[in-house]
Write a protein that binds this DNA or RNA. Structure first.
Lengths: 359, 359
DNA sequence: TTCATATTGTAAATCGATTCATTTGCGATA
DNA sequence: TATCGCAAATGAATCGATTTACAATATGAA
């Protein structure tokens, strides 16, 4: 228990060996729990380890083994709770299997995503969990394949012919949203998203459309996909509202929900009296605001579990065709979705008690 | 550009050397840009690198240099945007200096925090940015010192005699909140927090008290600190409201703000008509909800910049007494803070807003 | 006693780099 | 021609482990 002046050299396996009076090879065996070591020597090694505060250098060990006990996670951002929770879950699961997780953010850039894959490759990680910026067709996925790395794609993906994928059942979730909106009597719904978002967005749109047209062929479904960033979406929505007035909005991603709420406020519209809102992606605050916001809840922990399971199966050498795992979502209806009346008088809803629709 | 069958051995510096017809030592020099290499050989090496798709193994290199170009970040959680943004900023800043950031979450556990420090030590990181679970007096900090690691403490810290610290100016921020509440005519304020939170919480309380008593000696200030987790706080607040009715709440941390909002809803209280709310920590959604929530905004990017600056100064060998850097916050007043009138007419505030709060 | 077989331990090679101390090559000077 | 000086290249050691191949010792059977 010396007090570090500064930067004291750490003791290596050689120091332990000489103090215990055995060879480094024997120390290594003891530390790995090999049984062919005399009990007395085992004890001496343990004593020496204790006395020297010895801890082995995992990278030096991995260098020789030429496979590192690390798995990488690449996510588009960490500024919303979705990927933050995902990374936390992945970290826990990887560590449970004796691996460390190193996470990195691609910051919604495919170029950076590719660089990160390159880095993970250089680091000789055992595997990668990649949440692509765009989709399984992006450059990150391509690199992963080119390098023959073992990896799993999550979240913004459909199916892939080489890599396992884990995503949310966008189709069923959207269909369920459609069902609930139809049931609540909505006849004109706006779908709100970004055009350069993943393929998942398109699935959400298509299956909403399909379900809606089956349940209510007269329903009008508009789609507003702004190119670029959230600011563009904000502007596009403002323009749209200048000409149209849907009875409900289905936001296809989290920020879209915020944009919709902002625009409601700007116009002095009350939700759900003037317009209803349901969004893909839940967040803690959505339960406590007024009105509480209906949302499609993604089972983050389950996705993480699936991803890590599949990844380690591959790491352990499983050879079989790539699987695409779909995890079901829950649609949580909250106050932001109101019920439309059969014979609705313009403005009537606004007059009535705002909370007439509650269960 | 071979197509990976599977797990092809990557080419090493030896492969490059033999293809270029030089020694590994020369290759190493070329790659590091040493100038004492004949131009012709430089070219040959570059050609070989290209032909073999060679990239060096950073850990092997670092092993010899015995200092890794990695810095560690340990944060309590990644499930709220605060630390997510912080990690993103740290990552960017570290990479700008040629280091990779590896982030890990202590999950609000001091035990795990200590294990992570241990891991970072084993990994021989060049430095650590630690956002302690509790404070600079925690076990993580102690370990950091014991191992003589270079590190910077951020966010939930005051000053330390050995390590540099970066935190927000809690005192000024709280004083400013007090000033604004007094100015708005509030005479009874509840401060809401968790008792096992960091020392920062106590600073926030003390300086609020001090400022309030200076500005309005008659102001009544209650403090509710629940032990344990958020559930306990929820219960404590419910009990408290059974007996007291402050005119404003100052939540000392983000979740407290959510708890307060939940409790308002449960009781059918309208904010700010029935009670005002201001919270430490801002979030994107607070601008778009009704009412928008007043908040103390922490300058996350600036904190990250400071932390990385100080850390690298130490890494580069600076020897001088530890500094405690304080970064000022902004207090953003929003609709959740109402003005108390001398002769207030019931419901007047409500006119501005179609949503009357009675249930 | 002797040979065969387990046990147990170690020297040396290896992983993929860096770096130090030398050697080599070559033109200039004596 | 011999020597010196400088530029350029390299062999070998090193970082901290693991692992292989083999040696040394102990045990047992014949």
């Amino acid at each position: 228990m010396r007090h570090a002046g500064k930067q004291l050299r750490r003791s290596s396996i050689h120091d332990v060996a000489s103090r215990a009076g055995v060879s480094p090879a024997t120390v290594s065996k003891v530390l790995q729990g090999v049984t062919t070591v005399k009990a007395e020597n085992v004890q001496r090694v343990h004593d020496a380890v204790e006395a020297l505060d010895y801890r082995l250098d995992p990278f030096a060990a991995d260098l020789r083994r030429s496979r590192r006990r690390i798995i990488g996670a690449i996510v588009p951002e960490l500024e919303s709770e979705f990927f933050g929770s995902m990374v936390t879950a992945l970290e826990r699961l990887a560590e449970k299997r004796g691996y460390a997780l190193v996470a990195a953010t691609s910051r919604e850039s495919e170029k950076r995503e590719a660089e990160l894959i390159e880095r993970m490759h250089d680091w000789r990680v055992a595997g990668v969990v990649l949440a692509p910026v765009r989709s399984e067709k992006g450059s990150g996925t391509a690199l992963l394949k080119r390098y023959g790395m073992t990896g799993v794609l999550v979240d913004r993906v459909m199916t892939d012919d080489t890599l396992d994928t884990v995503s949310v059942d966008n189709a069923s979730a959207s269909a369920e949203v459609a069902r609930q909106l139809v049931e609540a009597g909505h006849a004109h719904v706006l779908l709100l998203g970004l055009s350069d978002e993943s393929i998942a967005i398109h699935t959400r749109i298509d299956s909403f459309r399909k379900a809606a047209s089956q349940l209510d062929p007269t329903m009008k479904v508009d789609v507003l996909l702004a190119g670029g960033d959230v600011t563009a979406l904000r502007a596009a929505l403002a323009t749209y509202f200048g000409e149209h007035k849907p009875t409900a909005i289905y936001s296809l991603f989290l920020k879209g929900t915020l944009v919709a709420l902002t625009e409601f406020r700007r116009r002095g519209w009350h939700c759900p009296n003037d317009i209803s809102l349901v969004g893909f992606d839940d967040a803690e605050w959505m339960q406590v605001t007024y009105p509480s916001i209906a949302a499609v809840v993604q089972p983050i922990d389950k996705m993480a579990e699936q991803a890590v399971d599949m990844l380690f199966r591959r790491i352990d050498g499983l050879e079989e065709p790539a699987k695409a795992h779909l995890e079901p979502c829950k649609v949580v209806m909250r106050e932001s979705v109101g019920r439309m009346r059969q014979h609705r008088i313009e403005g009537e809803e606004t007059m009535a008690d705002p909370r007439h629709h509650q269960r």
